[in-house]
Design a protein around this nucleic acid. Sequence first.
DNA 1: TTATAGCATTTATGATCAAATGATCACAAA
DNA 2: TTTGTGATCATTTGATCATAAATGCTATAA
Lengths: 224, 224
Amino acid sequence: MNFGPVSSRTTIQDGVYQQLRQALMNGQFNPAQSLTIAGLAETFGTSNMPVREALRRLAAENALEIASNGSARVPVVTAARLDDLCRARIAVEALATELGAPRLTSADLDVLKGIVSEQREIGRQKNIYALITKNQQFHFTIYRASGSDVLIQLIETLWLRFGPYMRMLSTHVAPQIRTGESEPSGRHMAIVEALQNRDFARARDELIADITTTQDVLRPLCPE
Amino acid sequence: MNFGPVSSRTTIQDGVYQQLRQALMNGQFNPAQSLTIAGLAETFGTSNMPVREALRRLAAENALEIASNGSARVPVVTAARLDDLCRARIAVEALATELGAPRLTSADLDVLKGIVSEQREIGRQKNIYALITKNQQFHFTIYRASGSDVLIQLIETLWLRFGPYMRMLSTHVAPQIRTGESEPSGRHMAIVEALQNRDFARARDELIADITTTQDVLRPLCPE
DNA sequence: TTATAGCATTTATGATCAAATGATCACAAA
DNA sequence: TTTGTGATCATTTGATCATAAATGCTATAA
């Protein structure tokens, strides 16, 4: 993951920020859950200061909402928001795929193939968080090849906001994967095939299909 | 009794944040200029605390970079970064235009026409900042009609990062506008025409052309 | 003249405290 | 029962201070 060219020294607030960010992206918080400064400071074993700056940063990325009393809250999930997010994801990630696909090295392709087989392996066990992490690695391997810092940062904020929906995936879809109803690697194998054939248009289309199938799985799970 | 919006309690840090944000988006800071907490606290007449949180928020949006000692800095401008930004802008803003165009009311169209004529008027005077503001209003009137919160937020962060390039526009292109070499409203009139004819595909294409012509004007002005 | 060690300055970071604000709940009045 | 009032609690916000890290400068030695 790209955290800037920045400081050699790692500050406490950075640590808090990174951990919260990862937890959010993996869907480890409940939607509408409220995160208090003092509470988090307690669990992290720091004073309030690093926590409040980390929360502000995440709120600035729209990963958290600020309640009327200033508290930070995990955004609620709705079907409309899911569609809105996925539409933006498709626009940005399709472009990143178009740019990245022709620049992938054969080493990169090996990495992608490795990730797919690891996903199959993990799918047989039941570790949904590991599966989410592998999914991240797969997609961002392609996106990073685009060489576009701007696109990568946009995609990261979109994935961050997608975290709460990932949580629904973990609680509702995990049984399907366990029973083999659902393929743990999604359409990743098709993407790899297209990339190997240097059929970049098809790779992009398969990626879009990967997003929309996830979207279709999640939409009926949204409240209301 | 106060009838203002209940949830929008305005804190000092919000004021600092808004002002810095607007200044950045309008290109009122020099590229590579370093912004110190104490310095800004001095000019705003507050303590350090509101400033440091505002700076963190802007850094989280990639509107500022964090130097090795933690100071915030306005990013430098390069041709490569300009191209990267514009590519992302086209992807996102074209989609927002496709979604927004069919939903524009005739009142919205009147607003757009009004903005274009105001731009012509302002162009005859020499107020480049007013011109930039009007340009913002024009584009976001269309984007807001899309109804997509996610897209609007993405576009805002992109425009924020575009601010330093806007500054180049002010210092280098202003003379051209004064002598009539450059049209102050860009391709906005063509966009309005297409919208009125409900030719949405052409509206999108004209918007893309608006971005790329700006890009072509700015690229030779980038250092190196 | 150049390289370097040490010092001084600048600056952010983190902790702690006081003030202000919003939420909640009990209680009283209609 | 419903509505208004007040008290209390939880929580953020802002200020101040101590500390540490980074940077720049100067003096000194090779």
